[in-house]
Design a protein around this nucleic acid. Sequence first.
DNA 1: GCGATTGA
DNA 2: TCAATCGC
Length: 959
Amino acid sequence: MDKPVHKLFLLDAMALIYRAHFAFIKTPRITSKGLNTSAVFGFANTLLEVLQKEKPTHIGVAFDTSAPTFRHIQFEAYKAQRQEQPEDITVAVPLVKRLLDAMCIPTLVMDGYEADDIIGTIAKEAGQAGFEVFMMTPDKDYGQLVEQHIHIYKPAFMGKGPEVLGVQQILDRWQIRRIDQVIDILGLMGDAVDNIPGIPGVGEKTAQKLIQEYDSIENLITHVDEIKGKLGEKIRENIDMAVMSKQLATIDTRVPVVFDAEDLTVCAGNADKIVALFDELEFKTLKQRVLGIGAPAPAAKVSIPGASGPAAQGQLDLFGNPTQEVGKQPAIVSEGIADDDAPEQAFEDLRLPTTRRTIDNTFHRYHTVDTPELMKSLAYYLSIQDAFCFDTETTSLDTIDAELVGLSFSYLPGEAFYVPVPANRDQALEILANFREVFENERIEKIGQNLKYDILVLRNYDIEVHGTLSDTMLAHYLLEPDKRHGMDILAGSYLNYEPVSITSLIGKKGVKQGTMRDVRIPEITQYAGEDADITLQLNTIFSRELPKVKASKLFREVEMPLLKVLAAMESTGVRLDIDALRDMSAVLENDLRQAESEIYEAAGQSFNISSPKQLGEVLFEKMKLIDKPKKTKTGQYATGEDILSDLENNHVIARRILDYRELQKLKSTYVDALPLLVSRRTGRIHTSYNQAVAATGRLSSTNPNLQNIPIRTPRGREIRKAFVPDNDDFQILSADYSQIELRIMAAFSGDTSMIEAFNQGRDIHATTASKVFQVALDEVTSDMRRKSKMVNFGIIYGISAFGLAQRLAIPRGEAAEIIRAYFEEFSSVKGYMDKVINDAREKEYVETILGRRRYLPDINSRNMTNRGYAERNAINAPIQGSAADMIKVAMINIHDFMKAEKLKSRMILQVHDELVFDAHRDEIPLLKSKVDELMRTAIPLPVKMETGIGIGANWLEAH
DNA sequence: GCGATTGA
DNA sequence: TCAATCGC
C-alpha cells in the first residue's frame, strides 16, 4: 500500500463567503422567508465538494476577528476605507458557523490575528510535520506561503475545475525567482482591496520588472538613484510606503497557536443538525447530497509525526465535538447565531475576493451564428424577447467609415450569439436583412454600451433601431458622473470580471494595430459574445441602481431619447464651404510668415515660436524681457497669454507672438483641419457628441470639436462663414438661450432684484454693476460692467477670488472686495449658495432640476484645496447642469416636433446654450416660432426665459 | 470652472 | 505628458 497521505485543508472563511456571495449577486438565492442564502449556499457547496472529491484527513476553517491586528496598529489606514460589509454577508456568517458546527469542522479564530496569519502559521507547522497542506482561498497574498508541501487550492468556480497552485505555479504567476518575492511585488504594487498603498503608479507589470532587476525592495532602495524618469521619482518619493506595504502584505507565521493534528481531524457531522439547518435554508439538493455522502471520509488511521497524540478514530460518531478551538490562548468564538447586541460588527475586516473573473474561469456559452438556418433561428428567438442586448464589431471607431465585421446578441446572462458579416456590402446587406425586423420592432427594448455608435453603424446599412433604448454607458454616467464609463471598467467594478482585451486580438494602439476584420471567427465570437453578455448583465444591475438615486426618469425620458436625437444630428452633419476655408488658409499662411519674420527680427534669431520652451528661453534668457520670469510647475518659463499681454507695451515682440499664436491656432485647428474631416461619402462634416464625459451633464463634441469654433476675435469669427446650409433652398438658423445660467441662478435663489431685471428685459451685467458699484444704471461705465460680468460668470463657472483676480488682471484684494459687495447686494444669492453647500455637506451630493446628481465627497474634506474645489462644484454643478437639462429637453421636443411635422429642416449642432438648424426657407417662420417656444418652455421656471434667434447664409450671419 | 485640440 | 488656447 502507498504511503498514506495526510491531507490538511485550511479554509479562509470570509474570503470564500465573499466570493460565494458575489458569484450569485445577479441571481441570488432567496428563501421563501426572504433570507438571502447565496453566501451560505456557495460556501456549503464548496465545502461539500472538497470533502467529497479531495477527501481531506484534516480540516480547519479560519475566521478573522474584530480585534485590531498588528496591521491596524502599524498602519491606521489599513482597510479603513473598506466598503461596509453587505448585510447578506453579515447574516451569512453565523449560518456558516452553524453549518461548520453541525458538520463537526473546527473553526480557527484568534484575537489580534487575521485568518491568513492563522492559516499561515498552521500551514507551516503542518508542512513540517509531513502533511500535504492545501490553503483554500481565492486570495493572492497566500502565494508567499507556498512551499514544497504547502499549496493554494482554488475552489472550483463557474464551470471550471479546482486548481492547485504549487511553487512553480506561483513563480510563473508572478514572474519571479523566489517565493518570498511575492511580498516584494505586493509591497510595490499595493492591494486596493486590503488598502495596502504600494507605490502610486506601479502596477503588477512594473513591480515585476523592478523585482526581476533588483531582486527585493531592500536592494531596490540601495539602487534607487539609478532609476530614471518619472518612475524613479515616484519610487524615491514613496519608498517608505513600499517598505511599510511590504510589512503589511507579509503574513505572520508566528501566531501563538499550537498545531494539534487531532484538533483538526475530520470527524463526522451531526446529521440531524445538518438536516435542520438545510431545511431552514431550503437547500433541497444539498440535503440530498450530504445525506448521500453520509459521513465525511474517515481520517487515515496512522499516527502523525510531530502531532500530539494519535489521530482520532471513531469518526462515525454522529454527535461529534462542537466547534473546536486552537491556540495557547483561548480562541474566541463570540458570534452566536444572533449577536445583534455585539458592540461592533464582528467581521468588519473581511476581504473581497481578489480573483478577477475572466472568460477562462466563468461559465459561458458564446455561439457563432454563420448559416442562414441559424440566423433565421436566432432572429426568431430575438423576436420573442422583450429586450435584447446587441453590439457591433467594426473596422473603425469612426462611425462614418466604419464597416461592419459582425454583430453580437445576448438575451440571457452567460449566453451570446455572434453573427459574422462579410466585407462585401451586398452579402452584408443580405445577412442583415435577417435582423431588420427585430431591430426595427418598436416593442423590443434594445440594450447596449454606447448605443449611439451601434445605431449609427447600422444606419449605414439602412437599418433603423427602434423601441426603447437602454444604454449602460449612460446609465452609469447618471450613477457615477465623475467616474469613467468604459465597459471594461464597469465589468470590473460591478461584476468583478475582466473582459478579453481588444489589444490581445488586434494588438496595441498605433500604426501596426490590425482591424477586427483580421481576427478569426472563433476568437471574435468569444470577444464579441462576451461584450454583449457582460453589457446585458450590467444593464440588469443598473436598472436596479437607477431608481435608488431617483434617476430612472432622467434616464428614460431625457438621456435615452436624446441619444436618438444626437444620432440623427451626427448622421445629418453640416455642410462646409471648403473653398472659403482654402482661401482663408492662404491668407493666414501669408500673415503667419509675416509675423514669423518680424518675431525673428525682433529676437535677433530664428527659433520655433510654437515651442513654449524655446520661446521662453529667447524671451527671458536672451532678451531678458523680465527680471523674474514666472515659471510653470515643470520649471519652464511661462509664456501664456496673460504673461505676454503684460509685456505688450514693453516690446513689440509680445504682441506679434500673440498674433502668431492666434493665427497658428486658427489655421491648424480649424481652417486646415476641418476640410480633412469632411466625409467623402456625404460631403459633410459629422461631429461626434459625447453624452457621458462632462460631469455636469453637458455634452461635449469631438472629431471635430464644433463647440469651440472661434467667435471672440474678428479673424476667428470668420471661420463660421464656412458653415453653410445644404443648398440654396436652405438657410442657417441659430437659436441661443440668453443668459440661461444666470436666469437659472436667479430662479434657484429667488433673488427678487435679479428676477425683476430679467423679467423687465434689462441688461443683467449693467444692472449687476449698478448695484455692486452703487451707481445709477446710466452711470455704469464699461469697466464696471466688464468686472460685474466677470463676477457673474465667475459664479457660474465656480471660480475663486483668486481666479477672478487673474481673469480681470486686478489685485486679489480688489477682486475679493467686488465679490463682497456682490453678495451684500444679492443677499439671496449668497443665502442660496450657503444653503447649497450646507445641503451638500450633509448629503455629499448636489443635484440639478431634473435630479441629475454630482457626488462631492470632498465637500467634507479637511484639505482646504479639495474642499474649496468641491464647494465651487456644489454651486456650479446644479446651475450648469440644470441648463444642460433644459436644452436637452428642448432638443428632444424640437426633434419630435420636426419629425411629426415631417419638416425638411434639420437640427445640426448644439453648442451648450445654442442650437443650429439647416432650415428650409419655406419652413423658417414656423421653425423660428416653434424653436423659440420649445426652448423657452422646456422646463418651466419662475423667471422669464429668452432666446435670440438669427437667420443667415452661414453660421456667422445667423448670429 | 470644464472639455477638446494642437504641437513639441 | 505638458502648455497653450478655443468655446461655453
